[in-house]
Design a protein around this nucleic acid. Structure first.
Lengths: 226, 226
DNA sequence: GGACAATCTTACCGGCGGTAAGTTATCACA
DNA sequence: TGTGATAACTTACCGCCGGTAAGATTGTCC
């Protein structure tokens, strides 16, 4: 048993993902995590600072993974939605923190960059669907490895060049999803959330991956022009 | 300062709703709650058992409120969706626990009954939208007061009589929302969740009540047959 | 006025997140 | 080769939390 663990950071993150998937972000105990890896409870501090830091890293990792999947769906709006739901079911631990700014260090550069990728992928899908999407130039990206699952090209989406039409010349004019696209994102997000939280089961509705992706496909189809 | 507080249970619930709205379910401290009301930290135990009990009561109260609002929307599918989002924005503390079976005592009769009302309201909306919805007979209701906000008739929805078409004669055959209705529910739920968690702002998208209800209306419209 | 139940208190436990200060291994560089 | 800076981890401590056990106070009902 070496004094240096060797891959503590990665192991902590992986263990955290597992625990969060099972018991939620609030069920995560840094001490328990550390115990499980045979180190004392202050060891994680060196790598992540505090609990918030662990969740932040988890969220960032999740965004890189999700962006990769959405990118793989290309311009197929419907498949992107299905991929979103599938991702949530495949990586519930990551998903549980990715859209929870309250649990996370919003100032983290790593997170901001990773989140920007997801954002671009979402906007790209919407832009491909209709011709009328807007886009900003902000938040430069940086391909820092570790993202993208095997078999999924990172495909750093270059999201420049789409019409930008914000009134006042504010520095960070937020791009807007057209309402239907926001609804589609919401639908995928809500379906995944309801399923993962067990709410669907509690309401007496089926929530197997097959049923869900099926419903997502069938429902999103309705948002697609004939 | 009387030995008996008088309305400790109600006050605890109200305070809990406030705290959960601000800091989430995991940010709720029974001790802090008790301190705020001038009682010791074991006083809540008598009324709610434990923290889970408080959240359970909160969820049940929320379901009664939501069912009331959905009922007020009547058979208007679109307005029910908008009402769902509005409810979440109006009662973020309740909403945060209502669809989180992991945080709650699922065996609670009060919760089961209250949740059944929401479920009926959702199914009713879907059934009204198309003629092809299914319904079960389970979970009797009981109008135990405290629900329904001022100005909203409780309207204990009698949800019998719709076609029931489940194969095996299992005792509790779950009714299914048609896929598009599940998607619509998911959309309303997802939009509310994303907005409340701050994810929309974090993604650089607007999330004022007006923008949200507007997007919900515009998006749901697309799910409505011309 | 006396039994009884409801309500609230004091006292205690282990676990958690977090901080401060010290120890040990590794690595860059003379 | 060795030595000094630095990264990685430990020990010791703090206050807060949720939860339990046992006791005190109050209201109710006969």
């Amino acid at each position: 048993m070496a004094y240096h663990h060797g891959s503590l950071k990665e192991d902590l993150l992986a263990a955290a993902a597992r625990v969060v998937a099972e018991r939620g972000p609030s069920g995560l105990s840094l001490r328990e995590l550390a115990r499980g890896l045979g180190v004392t409870h202050t060891a994680p501090r060196h790598h992540f600072g505090d609990k918030r830091g662990v969740l932040t890293a988890l969220a960032a990792q999740g965004h890189r993974l999700l962006a990769g999947r959405l990118g793989a769906a290309g311009d197929d709006f419907l498949e992107a939605g299905v991929a979103y739901v599938r991702f949530a079911l495949d990586h519930p631990g990551h998903f549980a923190v990715m859209f929870r700014p309250d649990l996370v260090d919003d100032g983290s550069d790593e997170l901001r960059q990773a989140r920007s990728r997801t954002r671009s992928a979402l906007l790209r899908g919407a832009a491909a669907y209709v011709g009328s999407a807007m886009e900003e130039g902000g938040e430069a990206e940086q391909s820092t490895a570790d993202g993208a699952e095997p078999g999924v090209a990172a495909s750093a989406v270059t999201d420049a060049g789409i019409a930008k039409s914000t009134k006042a010349g504010a520095t960070d004019s937020p791009a807007e999803l057209p309402p239907f696209a926001l609804l589609a994102w919401s639908a995928a997000h809500g379906m995944a959330s309801l399923a993962l939280s067990g709410a669907l089961s509690a309401m007496g509705m089926g929530s197997t991956p097959e049923e869900l992706t099926g419903s997502a496909r069938a429902g999103l189809q309705r948002l697609t022009p004939s």
